[in-house]
Nucleic acid binder design. Structure first.
Ligand SMILES: NC(=O)c1ccc[n+]([C@@H]2O[C@H](COP(=O)([O-])OP(=O)(O)OC[C@H]3O[C@@H](n4cnc5c(N)ncnc54)[C@H](O)[C@@H]3O)[C@@H](O)[C@H]2O)c1
Ligand SMILES: NC(=O)c1ccc[n+]([C@@H]2O[C@H](COP(=O)([O-])OP(=O)(O)OC[C@H]3O[C@@H](n4cnc5c(N)ncnc54)[C@H](O)[C@@H]3O)[C@@H](O)[C@H]2O)c1
Lengths: 255, 255
DNA sequence: AAGGGCTCGTGCACGAATGCACAAAGTTGA
DNA sequence: TCAACTTTGTGCATTCGTGCACGAGCCCTT
């Protein structure tokens, strides 16, 4: 019943580390959605919800939802559904949202400024502990965060703040060519979790987790499907010259 | 040799639509990375690259890279590697980046303003065609985009601009409670591709593709792993009361 | 107290994605 | 020209993720 889940001797690099249970990575990525929808439902005064209703609200199938929730435990009631507030709390606990995590942001430009003004930052278990930049015009300036305001500090003081205030998550919003250096500073400072908005692949130790947010990638994936909509044949070259298509395309490159 | 790839009768909902070849969704999501790294290499004057080198630069394994590229065709040379500029062009063509796609942005607040100033927008095959908002103070104001500047238009004119200028992609940066309405307007206007920054699940027809960018989700996934790092036992309740753990936790909820 | 109805939890099967390993194919040098 | 070396392209096995279907369990009614 408690689902022993005998995949302990997992080979390559699964998500969990320790002893007993592990939760699939795909499930972990959906838990924040469930949590958000449950929170909204609780605010509306909804007491209980079935897997079918909750799944629809989250844009997933009910089977997937139930399987996801089953990794956390048996928190539903057969014949009834899930208690909204209680399930929301269980997910929050599983995600580690019951006490806030400290966040530092490096690169206080257009995007960095927009991010720190983001209300969902503080409202979901995260707390900004410091803003950092390297540009003399930016360092020392004051930035208004939702509840209070911050003075931007030089990036050299990053390690100090992480150590003293106990930050756990770093956000990189510097230009691309500075991102690797910042990532290394964050790792040296003791951070193991990084969100990277710069369009570069970061090289970090295996015990550091990087999640990248990349608008250009999203747009290009959409562009791919848009093109497929127009031209269902896909990449099959239109075969206009009898030569090898490879050399033929090489000319079109400079069009 | 041209890789017929007989998985035409694909069942549920694969990525490709039409006739012959299809490319796995996981591969499509990596192609933009390959393209970016190849572009950077080309600017550095690198002529050829092996799958091992390129894979390292992209943060993937060489086997995965080669398999991904094999879906596009045989563009490598055995014993040598890939010609940087040529492979980059082939990926660009596959992604549909050879001619720019029109983009409209709805919600010109902190985040929207930051996005339109993003240089990588125009530099990779995308072109902003219009900015929209509903707030009287914002409509009519001028926003500087990288190459030129735009006057923010009322959201009622969205359909008109999409039709006249031929936009294909919509970006939503409105508050969460307005996002569903904006999405429906975009669909009505004829868009099939949406990037959603608002923290809500959008309900759209099946022939519309939504990609969501959600900072809160990224942070919460990182929080999950941070917590696991501290407490490897995971969600296994510490079992302090002999009662059912469910009722026991229900009290702790309001702590 | 017993039966009927509803929904959760999960075993099983299937498809997608990853990693391994190697033959095929091209290059280089003698 | 031929042999040794390098790297691609891909068949195969394994792992991961999803969807189906149904038994188990709880509530409500009679
Ligand atoms: N700021 C961030 O870094 C950040 C991060 C993650 C997610 N988000 C999300 O992105 C969205 C925008 O964030 P923001 O900080 O820019 O908010 P914002 O309030 O600064 O900007 C929102 C803009 O949308 C406009 N708007 C409101 N209702 C509209 C409607 N019905 N039609 C058209 N326009 C409308 C407003 O006038 C305003 O200009 C929010 O949903 C937020 O949760 C923001
Ligand atoms: N603006 C967007 O909407 C957007 C979208 C997608 C990705 N991005 C990426 O996010 C990053 C930031 O974008 P932005 O528009 O805010 O750029 P920006 O130029 O406005 O801001 C960058 C900030 O980083 C600071 N910086 C530069 N080098 C630094 C260093 N070594 N250490 C510390 N700080 C340093 C700069 O002083 C500046 O304040 C870029 O990599 C960009 O490609 C931005």
């Amino acid at each position: 019943m408690p689902l022993p889940d005998f995949r302990e001797s997992a080979g390559p690099l699964p998500c969990a580390g320790g002893k007993g249970n592990s939760i699939p990575e795909a499930t972990v990525a959906r838990l924040p959605i469930y949590h958000r929808v449950l929170t909204a439902m609780a605010e509306q005064g909804i007491i209980t919800v079935s897997s079918e209703e909750l799944a629809t609200a989250c844009g997933v199938t009910s089977a997937k939802l139930r399987k996801d929730l089953s990794y956390l435990g048996s928190y539903g009631t057969r014949g009834v559904g899930y208690e909204v507030e209680f399930l929301g709390y269980q997910i929050a606990r599983e995600l580690g949202l019951t006490s806030p995590w400290g966040v530092v942001v490096v690169g206080v430009g257009n995007l960095g400024r927009a991010l720190v003004s983001y209300r969902g930052f503080a409202s979901r278990g995260f707390r900004i502990l410091g803003l950092f930049d390297s540009h003399p015009d930016v360092v020392g300036s004051t930035v208004a965060v939702v509840d209070r305001s911050f003075t931007v500090r030089p990036v050299e003081e990053l390690a100090e703040v992480v150590a003293d205030q106990g930050a756990h998550i770093g956000v990189i919003t510097t230009p691309a060519d500075a991102a690797q250096d910042i990532a290394e500073r964050m790792v040296k400072a003791g951070l193991h979790s990084i969100v990277n908005f710069a369009p570069v692949v970061l090289n970090v130790p295996t015990d550091v987790e990087v999640r990248k947010v990349d608008l250009a990638v999203e747009l290009q994936v959409l562009a791919f499907h848009e093109q497929r909509r127009k031209n269902p044949a896909g990449s099959v070259v239109t075969e206009l010259d009898p030569q090898r298509s490879v050399s033929g395309d090489r000319k079109a490159m400079n069009a």
